[in-house]
Design a protein around this nucleic acid. Structure first.
Lengths: 230, 230
DNA sequence: TAAAAGTTTTAGATTTGTCTAAAATTTATT
DNA sequence: AATAAATTTTAGACAAATCTAAAACTTTTA
């Protein structure tokens, strides 16, 4: 990929969306991508033809599609930009977790490679964005996060919160109330099979009970989730 | 003007260019604007018709045009964004004076009003950008800078460098070499009518001679050019 | 002041990204 | 397996921003 290769904002959005959908479903279909981009299936077909011509996707008509290596690299650069800007907005400009997405959607399409590398350095090479999602490095390498949700965690294993899967303001409020946030170290003290709720212990605090619903949204890992790279 | 009024990048570029050209020439003409935007007169006419419909310019065919009040406010918001981003790039991301323009051209089209106000606060409400150009405030008020170029300055009047009009790398290097930069306090000790060159004295340094060419590009003012607002 | 030169606008095309409606194809259902 | 349902693609249109070439208008000049 050429160093400052510029794809249109719309193409970048398509690549990014395909990347995310692929992670869940493997092959992506026209309707699913259209829904995810709030556009029409016909428009997706149009765009996919262009992406295929530019050799960014593997696509045969009526068969669905996925990114090839070039496409994946391009998508990861967009994701890198998005997540670094989100980090900037939250950590430097004091935005809340929940208000940064829209703005980052715009900022992610600024082309300059140098800009994004300088921003990365300015932010101290963060490894994950404010939602706990990992930030690809300059080469498009995504740090592997052995991330599981709380309900899969064994008893008494000490981990750190590395992400929140579904972030409604209500959910965030509940977690805030229980002193659980990104980077919080905690462990499970007891599991209640009746409703799959959990008793969770945060250091220096009385134990709290979390519903299965909440537990599934709290992602944890046993490495240092907010450590700096390099 | 609605708080988050969004004009297309191209419209913003036209408004901004008209604003700048107006400062020099009063009324702006099709060819001049086309040259300034690196586009064709026909394209300018097309765009001007749209800007007229949106009530941003005063324009009658074959007669030239200028911004009305709405248009001026819109232009100043773009200029505000551009200059704040330039300041950010230089002061926070360690870019050089000369490399920020292109990138700021992209960043200036990000819409969010909240983003730009937060950025302003994060930067400490700077009053001028890294080139010494004044940054309009949130209401589009441009701090008045009684800025003159060095060749117009009377003898022995102590002033501060508040801007550099034409910034070639060569010019910047020359100024750098003579210890003249933004904020430098200096005064004129002698004028040579033969070639309009000047002898200039910077505090704690031996006097230096500047050509008329250079003197015309060094803008100075007798107030504090880099003071913070509010 | 009429012709020449220059400027500006119009007319008609082009590109990119999008849409609707209809046709083609695939998948599901009786 | 034939038909119905759903999905995907094609065909044709549209809006925004741009272009070229030609026409309309202004300004300059001889």
């Amino acid at each position: 990929m050429a160093p400052n290769m510029k794809y249109s904002a719309s193409k970048e959005n398509h690549l990014k969306a395909i990347f995310h959908l692929q992670q869940e479903h493997g092959v992506v279909t026209t309707t699913v991508l259209a829904a995810s981009l709030q556009t029409r299936p016909a428009s997706v077909t149009d765009m996919l033809k262009k992406l295929k011509e530019q050799k960014l996707v593997i696509y045969e008509r009526y068969k669905g599609f996925k990114l090839n290596n070039e496409g994946r690299k391009a998508a990861l650069q967009v994701i890198r930009k998005h997540r670094l800007w989100e980090y900037f907005l939250v950590k430097k400009l004091q935005f809340g977790w929940d208000e940064v997405h829209e703005i980052a959607e715009e900022l992610e399409h600024i082309a300059s490679r140098k800009l994004i590398d300088r921003l990365d350095a300015f932010l101290g090479f963060p490894e994950s964005d404010p939602h706990g999602d990992p930030i690809p490095d300059g080469q498009g390498r995504l740090p592997v996060r052995r991330q599981v949700n709380l309900s899969q965690l064994p008893l008494n294993k000490s981990v750190q919160v590395s992400g929140i899967a579904s972030q409604t303001p209500e959910m965030l409020e509940l977690l805030q109330y229980n002193h659980i946030r990104l980077g919080t170290r905690l462990e499970i003290k007891k599991k209640f099979p009746f409703d799959d709720s959990l008793e969770v212990k945060v250091r220096n605090r009385p134990p709290v009970t979390l519903s299965a619903r909440v537990a599934k949204s709290v992602l944890v890992s046993d490495d240092e989730p907010l450590a700096e790279r390099r």
